[in-house]
Design a protein around this nucleic acid. Structure first.
Lengths: 224, 224
DNA sequence: CTTGACACAGAACAGATGTTCAGTTACAAT
DNA sequence: ATTGTAACTGAACATCTGTTCTGTGTCAAG
C-alpha cells in the first residue's frame, strides 16, 4: 500500500542525484545524465518520473529547455536564498554607532540564509557591525560578536535597538520600551536592571535583528 | 585606457545577465539567451567573450555541455557556498545533550555561509541545537539562541564545549581547559567564576562553533 | 479472463545548443 | 603602408537533448 504522494525508490534516487549534481556543477543535469546515474536506460522513463515528481511539487520544469528543471523550495530547497550583508564597521560602547560602508566595503560580506532573518524586509538595508570590547556584556553580547542591524531612527516596544545615549556618551544595545514620557532600556541579561531615560537623550541608531558569535578559536590559547 | 584585466561593457552586462538569469530560473542561460539579452546576434561572439571571462576567472565552463557554465566563487560569487545544518533538537540545562536528527529532520535546516564557520571541517557533521530556558546565561547564551556544534568526545584547551556533568546532572556550555588532573570549565561571561571538576564527571558532547541569536520579535510581554 | 492503470523499454524525431571557421572591422605598433 | 591583434559577424555543422510514439510486463479490480 503506497500512500498517495509517496516517492518511489527511483524517484528518491533521482532527487538525490539532481541535488548532488547541482551542488557539484552549478547547473541541473539532463535527462540522460539522470538516467545514467540512477540506472535507467530510457530517456522516456526519466521523463516520466520527472513529470510525476513535478506533479508532486518536488520540482518544476521548463518545457523544451535543456536542463530546465529546478528543485522546489518547499520540499527540498537547493538554491540557497541568502542575503549578503556588508560589514560596515564596529560598535563599541564609547563610540557612536556609524555605518561606514565605504571604509569596510572590501571586507567579506556576511551571508545569511534569508529565513534566518526574523522579519526580513528587503526595502530596509542591512549592515553588520562587529562588537569591540567587553562592555556590552549586559546585552549578552561578547567582544567579537557580529550584530546584524538595519538603520532605523524609530523603534517599537520590544525591539532590540542600538542607541546612543547623549547624556553619558555611550552606545549600547538594549530592548526598547516606551513608558509614559520615559523610555525604558532593558538589558538582554535579565539579571541586569533596566534604565529609565528621557527621550531627548536617546538616539536610536538601528534595530538589531541578529547576533552571530563565532567560536572557532577564542583568544585564550594555551600551548600544551 | 583599459587595465589588463578590465571587464568590457559587454562582459559586465553578460555577467549581470547570467547572475540574474540564474537567480530567476535556477539554471544557467544558453549562449543564445545571453546574446539575446545583451544584444549580440552572433553566438560566436558570446562564446568568445565567455572564454575571455573564463580566462579572467569570472566563470568556468564545461565543454560541450548545454548551459554548462557557472560563476566563480572568487570574483563575483553567485552560488552561495552555504552549509546546511539540520536542527537536531534543543539543549537545556537539566537534560543531556542529544542530537535527535530523526525527530527534527523535517524542520527547516539552518543555512550558513561556509566562511562564517571558523574552522569548518567537512568530515565532521554539524548540528544545530536550540537553547531552552534561561539557565545558560553564564555562557552568554539566551533562551532561544541556536548553537551550531559538531559532536566531539574530546576537547582541546580553549574550545567552547557542550558538556554533561554527571555529578550534578546538568548540561552546560563552557570553555574547556585541562589543568593538571582537573578540568577547568570557564563561563563565557568573565564575571562568572570557573569551576574545577574531575575528568570523570565531564562528558564532552560536542564542540560549539557558533551561536546565532534571532531578535525579530522577542517576548513582547508588556500588556498595557 | 479481461480490463485498465501504472511503470517501464526502446527507438525515432525535431529542435536546441555548443563549436568551428572564413571573413570583416578597428586600431595601435612598426 | 604593413603588420598584428583583439573584437566581431554570419553561417554551417555535429551533437546534445527534450519530446513523442509504439510496445511490454505487472498487478489489482471487475
Amino acid at each position: 500500500m503506497s500512500e498517495p504522494n509517496r516517492l518511489s525508490h527511483r524517484q528518491q534516487a533521482m532527487l538525490d542525484f539532481i541535488r548532488s549534481f547541482m551542488v557539484e556543477t552549478g547547473y541541473p543535469p539532463t535527462i540522460r545524465e539522470i538516467g545514467r546515474a540512477v540506472g535507467i536506460s530510457s530517456t522516456s522513463v526519466v521523463n516520466y518520473n520527472l513529470n510525476r515528481l513535478q506533479e508532486m511539487k518536488y520540482l518544476s520544469r521548463e518545457r523544451d529547455v535543456s536542463r530546465g528543471l529546478r528543485l522546489s523550495v518547499g520540499k527540498s530547497r537547493l538554491i540557497p536564498d541568502v542575503v549578503r550583508i556588508p560589514l560596515a564597521g564596529g560598535i563599541r560602547a564609547g563610540e557612536p554607532v556609524e555605518f561606514n560602508v565605504e571604509a569596510f566595503g572590501d571586507e567579506d560580506p556576511i551571508e545569511l540564509s534569508r529565513d534566518l532573518l526574523p522579519h526580513y524586509d528587503r526595502s530596509q538595508p542591512l549592515y553588520a557591525l562587529q562588537v569591540r570590547g567587553d562592555s556590552m556584556i549586559d546585552a549578552m553580547v561578547n567582544d567579537g560578536d557580529i550584530v546584524i542591524m538595519t538603520p532605523h531612527h524609530a523603534a517599537r516596544d520590544g525591539d532590540m535597538v542600538a542607541v546612543w545615549l547623549s547624556d553619558r556618551d555611550e552606545s549600547t544595545l538594549k530592548y526598547y520600551y516606551q513608558e509614559g514620557d520615559r523610555i525604558r532600556l532593558q538589558p538582554a541579561n535579565p539579571i541586569m536592571a533596566p534604565i529609565l531615560v528621557d527621550p531627548s537623550v536617546v538616539q536610536v541608531k538601528g534595530k538589531v535583528l541578529m547576533v552571530v558569535r563565532q567560536l572557532g578559536k577564542p583568544a585564550a590559547h594555551h600551548s600544551t
